[in-house]
């Protein structure tokens, strides 16, 4: 038998929010069907680095491991993505893994994506129903409308579009591509559209649509293939109409 096949990983680590990042290398035994997360799990069971020194297991966020929860975003070989779908067989080695540092890094690969959830509040990303009591069926919708809304509704707030966008950073207030997509989603619902103007106001305020530089990185990076640039274009047209109407009403 030849010697056992191994995987090499170089992980950018950080002990705390105000600590300096450093790189640590790991060598992990290869098995079939591994992804970046199962390599991390192997390190948990045997926390030793490539130099043979004892170390702490890597800290990272993950949950569903099938790309529907949005937790496990990180930069892998230079590309922001979900680590659950990062299959070892498809990655060039050594695999370089870094946190998505558009967001504050808390420890190792753990980041604080709180600003995304705040953005959802800011743009009022909900359908304003009268209450959860029994009021019968919702409005009828065509299959076409449903399919457009379903595409937008797959957004799992993973932050990959934020990392990829050149106009989102710790210094800018841009709500980010995903939030524009969520406004498009809510405004295209028959009930949601009744408050479309309110969401539009939020979307053209500070840190809104005008911050988009049209790099189109978001749509290429989105792991769910959400038509973000189409949503941005739709919202831009709606914003122009909104402004014009406001000007007429003035």
């Amino acid at each position: 038998m030849s010697e056992q096949k191994t995987i090499r990983l170089v992980v950018t680590r950080q002990d705390g929010p105000n600590e300096n990042p450093y790189r640590e290398e790991f060598v992990v035994p290869y098995r079939k069907n591994m992804n970046v997360i199962s390599a991390f799990m192997e390190i948990q069971r045997n926390p030793v680095n490539a130099e043979g020194k004892k170390t702490t297991p890597i800290n990272w966020e993950s949950n569903c491991l099938e790309e529907v929860c949005g937790a496990c975003s990180m930069i892998i070989n230079g590309r922001p993505r979900q680590s659950c779908t990062a299959l070892i067989d498809n990655l060039e080695q050594p695999i370089r893994i870094e946190p998505m540092n558009t967001f504050p890094v808390l420890r190792d690969l753990i980041i604080d994506r709180g600003r995304m959830f705040d953005a959802l509040k800011k743009v009022k990303a909900w359908i304003p129903i009268d209450g959860s009591h029994d009021l019968g069926p919702g409005p009828r919708q065509s299959e076409e409308e449903q399919q457009w809304r379903y595409e937008l509704s797959k957004c799992m707030t993973c932050g990959v579009c934020m990392e990829a966008c050149p106009n989102v950073s710790g210094k800018s207030s841009f709500v980010g591509p995903f939030a524009v997509g969520q406004v498009a989603l809510m405004n295209s619902h028959p009930t949601g559209s009744m408050r479309a103007q309110e969401r539009m106001e939020a979307l053209i305020s500070d840190g809104g649509l005008q911050e988009c530089g049209n790099s189109q990185n978001c749509v290429r990076a989105c792991p769910k293939g959400i038509p973000l640039t189409k949503a941005i274009a739709t919202m831009n047209r709606a914003a122009t109409k909104h402004m014009f109407k406001k000007w007429l009403d003035f």
Partner: peptide
């Protein structure tokens, strides 16, 4: 049935029939 209708009112993109029903 009431729960499905409630979720529908909240905007869940349930698949539709050609008539626009759930």
């Amino acid at each position: 049935p009431g729960i499905i209708y409630m979720m529908d009112r909240m905007g869940v993109p349930f698949n539709r029939t050609p008539e626009g029903l759930l």
